[in-house]
Simulated scan of single mutants.
Amino acid sequence: MAAADVCGCDWAAAYYGHAARAAAVRTFEPCISVYRHARHGKTTCAKILARAVNCEHPVNGDPCNECAACRGILDGSVLDVTED
C-alpha cells in the first residue's frame, strides 16, 4: 500500500505522499506532527511513511513492501513502529 492508496483521505495521501518522496532522497523533516479527528487515516499513513523512510528498495518514494524493513513494519515485529 502506498500513500495514494488511502481512500477518502486526500489530505493524508497528498501530505504523506510528498513526505514519502522526500524520504526517498533523504530530504525530509526530522519531525512530523499531524492532528486530525479519529478515523482519518493518521496511523495508516504514518505506517506507510515509516516503511518509506526505512525501506531498503523504495519505488518512486513508496515502500517496496518486500524488504526486511517493510515486512517487519507490516507484521509488527519492528518495535520502533507500534500503535498504542
Rank of each mutant, 00 (worst) to 15 (best):
V53P: 02
N60R: 14
H40G: 01
D75C: 00
I32D: 04
L49G: 00
A20N: 01
S77A: 07
A68H: 13
I48P: 08
A69Y: 01
G8M: 07
A4P: 00
S77H: 00
H40Q: 12
A12G: 09
N60L: 13
P63V: 00
D84A: 10
N65P: 01
F28A: 14
I73M: 07
A12Y: 06
H18E: 11
E29L: 09
H18Q: 06
C70K: 00
V6P: 03
T44Q: 02
L74K: 03
A24D: 05
R26K: 14
A13T: 07
T27S: 09
L49P: 05
C31Y: 09
A52M: 07
R51I: 09
Y15T: 12
C9I: 10
A68P: 01
V78W: 13
D80W: 05
A46R: 13
A23K: 00
A19V: 06
V6F: 00
V6I: 07
N54D: 00
F28S: 15
A2F: 03
E83K: 09
F28T: 14
S33N: 09
A52Y: 01
G61C: 03
A2Y: 04
S77L: 02
E29H: 12
N54R: 03
V81Y: 14
N54K: 08
R71D: 03
H37N: 08
D80I: 01
S77M: 00
S77E: 03
N54E: 04
P58Q: 01
G61S: 00
A23D: 05
C55I: 10
I32L: 09
P63T: 03
D75K: 01
R21H: 04
D84P: 15
Y15D: 05
P58R: 01
K42L: 09
C31I: 15
C55V: 06
A4F: 10
H18W: 07
R39G: 14
A4M: 10
R71N: 01
A52D: 06
Y35R: 11
H57Y: 14
A2I: 15
H37D: 07
A24W: 00
S77I: 02
H37A: 11
Y15Q: 05
V59P: 02
N65M: 13
A23N: 04
I48V: 15
A14G: 10
V25H: 07
A2L: 11
D62C: 08
T27R: 13
P63Q: 01
C7E: 13
A19C: 04
G17I: 05
G61I: 03
G8Q: 10
Y35K: 11
E56C: 03
R21V: 14
S33R: 11
